[in-house]
Design a protein around this nucleic acid. Structure first.
Lengths: 343, 343
DNA sequence: GTATCCTAGTAAAACGTTTTTCTCCTAGCG
DNA sequence: CGCTAGGAGAAAAACGTTTTACTAGGATAC
């Protein structure tokens, strides 16, 4: 149990445990870290030191140590907004991997504003971030520390792009819709501020060509909101309906916009999936519990967070070199929101 | 823009800017912090120093500063899980207030496991957390640093409990249901691991008595899952249906369990709100976009996060004293998931 | 018998700040 | 003129570590 609040807890320092065992601070430090210089220290002494440290509940001052070693074991994470489905999933992966390796992370938000991003990048680095992970940001330049962009598509020396194989993803989605008989397919095109928007759309176009699907400009709606709630999709779903051009399926930009669009459809009397099939993207936790539950293209978000940490820690500890990119594979998850075209 | 990666950036320290202006490090430090000891430093010199600092883009080493001042400006946040709706909302409030005051926070997760909690409490404090915020944890003891528990109901010296006025909340909800004609009301009772579970249930009982509502044990289901997805409610909604005891409304433990229960109802052919009205609790972002959108009791989660930071920073800077508790007021948000009893 | 090597440590420097104490100099006062 | 007060800044200590350089004594080698 964490120690209860005492009247005044004397801080136990290296010096105090050294005094306690009658040795010098340097020696104690060497033993505790079992440094190479502790080679010649006999076992009996070591045990004495370790016992004392435990007994006094010695905990090294992290700041002193960082200052001396010029290492902080801290990563910085800059997300669009802390707590949306996408970043939560990635961050939970980051947390898992980081805590395992005894790294920490501090967070900032960019809200797709480059100035805010830069502000936080500076701030986090000043706070000791030795590496940065950016979430859903179009990073236009290199950074002074090793970095990973999730997802990243622009080439910047020193930043590793982790991204989904979008061609594969788009094909999975379109094939699924085609197999269900859909031909008049509408699309919600992501806000270009969102890092995946442009490559994802390019992949959709490529897949459409390959699979012989006609893209109808009237059925393509550009999202220009920045919400990280279903409001990202709701007004654009409405817009689509108002165009009065018939369609039987919607390929949304992501799950969150799909959920918003479905609400818009419901309000217009369109049933999902009976009248319109909807497919999302990401497989955020809410996707499974939406009504109807979402068919979606799953990105391994948790894993992408873990990979990012592994990559960066590897570089910081000189066990890895920088690499330009890593792509991960999507998976289609078929649930209730898609169904065969009405006869 | 954040500086591009150079071949080898020389770290600019206090000493280097001192050298640049031909002064001593101490003087530069005094000017930059405009410390009382800089009283006698003429304006011309100050400006020279400040200009140089700006020109060299001097950024003080945070760790050295912390070490010397024995202050870290860091808060620790321990949540059940990073990224569920509840903690996301609170954390976003924490982030807002903390970044405004130039404080940072580091996070840990407790998953309702006291050992994990203690582990992270230690870890965060070792990493310099000067105060702690616990999210949804039944804290059974004091902590060595000032702390806030959200929500908190147990008395611990030095930890401030922030909680919702549950009596008010329960009355709002029950009154709403009664006005719609509901009498046979089912309840999802929270897992006692969840910090609000017991006081919330007590408030429900009190409100029921006050408003003359009969509580039927057959219509009360105890949640014993720990999920932070709608799986928190789904199996218990199922269970309720299987009891085959008629009811016309459900008062869920929270929104996330309400969403799960609604799914269970749908699967059993019960329509919401036509057959069963459902009221949630919290008003997490997903509540508005669920189908049907949730009627719920809103907690000002964002604000609670802000209050926590204000309280702690106030204490750290000796502008405030510890206080035992702060209660905040709920608000009912009526949406689609509740309606009048079928005629 | 002495040069060398190992053992078991100690002492001190260094990390980059902040803060307290100290010094030197000039101006003003009586 | 002698003295004090304040101005302008330097010097040094301190924060708690890690790490490098050093030392004193005993064992080993030749």
């Amino acid at each position: 149990m964490v120690e209860k609040k005492k009247t005044a807890e004397p801080i136990v320092t290296l010096k105090s445990v050294a005094a306690h065992v009658g040795l010098s601070a340097g020696t104690v430090s060497a033993v505790l870290n079992d440094a190479p210089s502790a080679r010649h220290i006999p076992k009996s002494t070591r045990e004495r030191v370790i016992a004392a440290a435990r007994k006094l509940d010695y905990r090294p001052n992290f700041f002193a140590r960082s200052l001396r070693k010029q290492r902080t074991f801290t990563l910085g994470v800059i997300a669009h907004e802390i707590g949306d489905g996408y970043s939560s999933a990635v961050i939970s992966g980051i947390e898992d991997s980081a805590s395992q390796r005894n790294y920490f992370f501090v967070t900032g938000v960019h809200r797709h504003d480059p100035e805010l991003f830069d502000k936080y990048a500076r701030l986090l680095m000043q706070r000791g971030a030795e590496a940065l992970i950016t979430l859903d940001f179009n990073l236009g330049h290199s950074l002074p520390v090793p970095a990973v962009a999730i997802p990243g598509h622009l080439e910047n020396e020193g930043v590793t792009n982790i991204y989904l194989d979008h061609n594969h993803a788009a094909e999975l989605a379109l094939k699924h819709l085609i197999e269900l008989g859909h031909r008049r397919i509408a699309f919600l095109k992501g806000n270009p501020e969102s890092a995946d928007a442009i490559p994802r759309w390019a992949a959709v176009e490529a897949a459409a060509t390959k699979l012989g699907v006609q893209l109808d400009p009237d059925l393509i709606v550009q999202i220009d909101a920045r919400d990280s709630t279903p409001n990202l999709g709701y007004p654009f779903g409405k817009k689509l309906v108002e165009r009065k051009k018939p369609f039987t399926a919607l390929f949304a930009y992501n799950d969150i916009s799909a959920i918003g669009a479905i609400r818009a459809f419901h309000e217009s009397g369109l049933r999902v999936p009976q009248d319109v099939s909807v497919i999302g993207f990401d497989d955020i936790p809410a996707a499974a519990f939406n009504y109807p539950s979402l068919t979606t293209i799953r990105q391994p978000l948790h894993k992408m967070g873990e990979i990012a940490v592994d990559l960066l820690v590897g570089q910081l500890e000189h066990k890895r070199e920088w690499q330009k990119e890593i792509s991960v594979e999507p998976e289609i998850v078929v649930r209730e929101s898609t169904g065969p075209i009405a006869p």
